[in-house]
Computed example of a mutant assay.
Amino acid sequence: MTGNADLLEQFTALDSATVSDALDNCGLPPGQGGLPPMWGRPRIAGFAATVELEPTAGVHAGAHILTDAIAVAGAENIMVIANAGRTDVSSWGGIVSVGAALRSIRGVVTDGACRDVDQARELGFPVFARAQAPVTARGRLRQKSAGGPVRLGDVMVEPGDVVMADEGGVVVVPRERVAEVLAEARRVRAREARIEADVRAGTPLPQAMRDARLAGVEKQ
């Protein structure tokens, strides 16, 4: 296995659709949509640092949600926030973007809403979320867990799994299957590049895009 930084660079050289196809081919859950970047066109890959939120009633006491988890994450991490897809209350905001950026965290993917996108944009901090909502989490959400498995949409994410996100979607690669999925993604990319080259050279589309060829089960 390559070093962690090099491994993540290899994933950022791909795109979410290619990695999703590779996950399919490896019998793993594919990528998912509905988590677009809240600004720009970032592409990030990192090891999941997980937090699960849940509803609460009343005023928070002690440290705000997310703060402890951000304080122990670092330059190879992406924050993954489980909030059951809620879009009526923010699960990520401007001050935590500042704190995460200062820790060199690569970005956040939250299964919920966010706010203060202008601050994230000014920081260059990538935020992927279901929606934007100005409503504060204070008195509405509390932190159920940090550093454990969480559900992101239809996919379970374990701490340390590779998460990749771009404008096309979000993919999660189990840490123990990273080498296999990366190798398959490279095969997918090379195969599609050959097909695209043939189409550009004049090969009729039905011939170029045979199902068997796209699946990589015949010689090229």
Rank of each mutant, 00 (worst) to 15 (best):
F11D: 01
S16N: 05
S16T: 15
S16C: 14
A17C: 02
L23Q: 07
D24T: 14
G31K: 12
G31W: 11
Q32V: 08
Q32E: 15
G33W: 01
L35G: 06
P37H: 07
M38Q: 15
M38E: 11
M38C: 04
W39H: 10
R41D: 14
A45W: 07
F47Y: 15
A49I: 04
T50D: 08
E52G: 06
P55R: 15
V59T: 11
A63R: 13
H64C: 04
L66N: 06
T67H: 06
T67V: 14
A73R: 13
A73H: 09
V80G: 13
I81Q: 07
T87L: 04
G93P: 03
S97A: 15
S104I: 00
G107S: 13
V108H: 00
V108I: 09
V109W: 02
D111Y: 14
A113R: 12
D116K: 00
D118I: 02
Q119D: 08
E122N: 00
L123N: 02
L123W: 00
F128R: 05
R130Q: 07
A137Y: 12
R142A: 12
Q143I: 03
Q143K: 06
R151I: 08
M156H: 11
M156S: 14
P159E: 06
G160L: 10
V162F: 03
V163W: 08
A165R: 07
D166F: 07
D166T: 00
D166E: 04
G168D: 11
P174A: 08
L182W: 10
A185V: 00
R189N: 12
A190M: 07
I195R: 01
R200Y: 04
A201V: 09
T203I: 07
P206I: 06
M209F: 12
V217G: 00
V217Y: 01
E218I: 13
